[in-house]
Measured scan of single mutants.
Amino acid sequence: TTYKLIANGKTLKGETTTEAVDAETAERVFKEYAKKNGVDGEWTYDDATKTFTVTE
């Protein structure tokens, strides 16, 4: 399944996707990606669109 991340960070803005077996796995991947890019904010997830959003 393809999951999408929308990053609304102070230093990183944009979108990326990952293939994962479930939302929990995708969330781990995206949180690691955000951490590597210095983004720390509020996370939301929309199951209907398989989209995570992080906003600083």
Score class of each variant (00 low, 15 high):
1 T>Y: 14
1 T>W: 13
1 T>S: 10
2 T>F: 09
2 T>A: 05
3 Y>D: 01
3 Y>Q: 01
4 K>Y: 15
4 K>S: 05
4 K>W: 13
4 K>N: 05
4 K>T: 14
5 L>D: 01
5 L>S: 01
6 I>V: 11
6 I>D: 03
6 I>K: 07
7 A>L: 15
7 A>D: 04
7 A>P: 03
7 A>T: 15
8 N>H: 12
9 G>C: 15
9 G>F: 12
10 K>M: 12
10 K>E: 09
11 T>Y: 14
11 T>K: 10
11 T>F: 14
11 T>Q: 10
11 T>D: 09
12 L>I: 10
12 L>M: 12
12 L>K: 05
12 L>V: 08
13 K>S: 11
13 K>F: 12
14 G>S: 12
14 G>C: 15
15 E>K: 07
15 E>Y: 13
16 T>F: 15
16 T>M: 14
16 T>L: 15
16 T>D: 04
17 T>Q: 09
17 T>F: 14
17 T>Y: 15
17 T>L: 07
17 T>G: 03
17 T>P: 02
18 T>I: 15
18 T>Y: 12
18 T>V: 15
19 E>R: 13
19 E>A: 07
19 E>Y: 15
19 E>W: 15
19 E>I: 15
20 A>E: 04
20 A>S: 06
21 V>T: 12
21 V>Y: 12
21 V>N: 12
21 V>H: 12
21 V>G: 09
21 V>C: 12
22 D>E: 04
22 D>L: 04
22 D>H: 04
22 D>R: 03
23 A>H: 10
23 A>Q: 13
23 A>C: 13
23 A>S: 09
24 E>M: 11
25 T>D: 08
25 T>P: 02
25 T>W: 07
25 T>F: 07
25 T>E: 14
26 A>Q: 01
26 A>C: 01
26 A>H: 00
27 E>T: 04
27 E>D: 04
27 E>C: 14
27 E>V: 05
27 E>N: 05
27 E>Y: 15
28 R>M: 10
28 R>N: 07
28 R>P: 02
28 R>K: 12
28 R>L: 10
29 V>W: 15
29 V>E: 07
30 F>A: 00
31 K>W: 06
31 K>Y: 06
31 K>N: 04
32 E>N: 08
32 E>V: 07
32 E>F: 06
32 E>C: 09
33 Y>C: 06
33 Y>Q: 03
33 Y>K: 02
35 K>A: 13
35 K>Y: 11
36 K>S: 11
37 N>H: 15
37 N>I: 14
37 N>T: 06
37 N>W: 15
37 N>C: 13
37 N>F: 14
38 G>V: 03
38 G>L: 05
38 G>K: 07
38 G>F: 06
38 G>C: 07
38 G>T: 03
39 V>Q: 05
39 V>E: 03
39 V>I: 15
40 D>V: 14
40 D>Y: 14
41 G>A: 03
41 G>V: 03
42 E>C: 12
42 E>T: 14
43 W>V: 02
44 T>D: 08
44 T>P: 00
44 T>C: 09
44 T>E: 10
45 Y>T: 00
45 Y>A: 01
46 D>N: 10
46 D>W: 03
46 D>G: 02
46 D>S: 06
46 D>H: 06
47 D>S: 12
47 D>P: 14
47 D>R: 08
48 A>F: 11
48 A>I: 11
48 A>E: 13
49 T>A: 06
49 T>L: 07
49 T>S: 10
49 T>F: 05
49 T>R: 06
50 K>T: 03
51 T>R: 03
51 T>E: 03
52 F>T: 00
52 F>H: 01
52 F>C: 00
53 T>S: 06
53 T>D: 02
53 T>L: 06
53 T>Q: 06
54 V>K: 01
54 V>D: 00
55 T>D: 06
55 T>M: 08
55 T>I: 10
55 T>V: 09
55 T>S: 09
55 T>E: 06
56 E>F: 09
56 E>S: 08
56 E>H: 07
56 E>W: 11
